[in-house]
C-alpha cells in the first residue's frame, strides 16, 4: 500500500466491481448472442465467440490479480516469481489438448470398422493364479495364442462401440 490514498483506493475498489461486473455481463452477452438467443437466427463464428470469451476471462484474471490481490504494487521480482512459473502450463495445455484430439480421432477411426459381437471373444474367465508357475504360464500362453488368432481374423472386439451399447440399457 502507500501508493494510493485511502480515498483513491476506495474508488479503485468501486471501479473494480463495475469492471468485473460489466465484463462478466459482456461474456454472457457474447455467449447468448453468439448462439442466437437474442437475435433469432443470428450466430457468431465460434472462433470469434471463444476468442472474445477467453480474452475477457484473461482480462478479469489480470484485474483480480493486479488490483484485488495487489500485484500491481508489489516489486517486480515477486510478480515474476509468481507469474512466470504459470507459463510452464502453456506447453502442458498444448500437449494435453493435442493428445485429447488424437484420442478423439482414433476413436472415430475405430468406430468406422464393423462392430464385432462381444460374445465369444472374451469368454474365458482369467484362471486363478496357482502357485505352480508352470501351469500358470501354460495357461497364459494358450490365452495369448487365442487372442492373436482372433486378431489376425480381423475379428477384433470393438470395445468402444460395445461398451457404448451397454451404457444405454
Amino acid at each position: 500500500m502507500g501508493h494510493l490514498s485511502y480515498e483513491e483506493s476506495k474508488k479503485v475498489v468501486l471501479r473494480g466491481l463495475l469492471i468485473l461486473a460489466i465484463v462478466t455481463l459482456l461474456e454472457v452477452f457474447v455467449a447468448l448472442i453468439g448462439k442466437g438467443y437474442i437475435i433469432n437466427g443470428f450466430h457468431l463464428p465460434i472462433w470469434i465467440m471463444y476468442g472474445a470469451m477467453i480474452s475477457m476471462s484473461l482480462y478479469k484474471a489480470y484485474f483480480i490479480v493486479y488490483y484485488f490481490m495487489h500485484m500491481k504494487y508489489e516489486v517486480p521480482g515477486l510478480v515474476k516469481s509468481v507469474l512466470l512459473p504459470t507459463m510452464l502450463l502453456l506447453w502442458a495445455v498444448i500437449a494435453f489438448f493435442t493428445e485429447g484430439r488424437s484420442w478423439h480421432d482414433w476413436r472415430a477411426q475405430k468406430n468406422d470398422r464393423p462392430i464385432a459381437s462381444l460374445t465369444g471373444v472374451v469368454n474365458e474367465k482369467e484362471s486363478k493364479m496357482e502357485t505352480k508357475h508352470g501351469q500358470v504360464e501354460e495357461q497364459k500362453n494358450e490365452q495369448m495364442t487365442k487372442d492373436s488368432t482372433l486378431q489376425t481374423d480381423g475379428n477384433t472386439h470393438d470395445e468402444e462401440s460395445t461398451s457404448e451399447e451397454t451404457q444405454h440399457h
Binding site: A92, V93, F96, F97, G100, W103, H104
Partner: peptide, 14 residues
Amino acid sequence: SAFLIAYGTLRFSM
C-alpha cells in the same frame, strides 16, 4: 490447472 487441463483433454477426446 491440472483439473482444468484434464477437463479440456477429455472434452477434446469426445
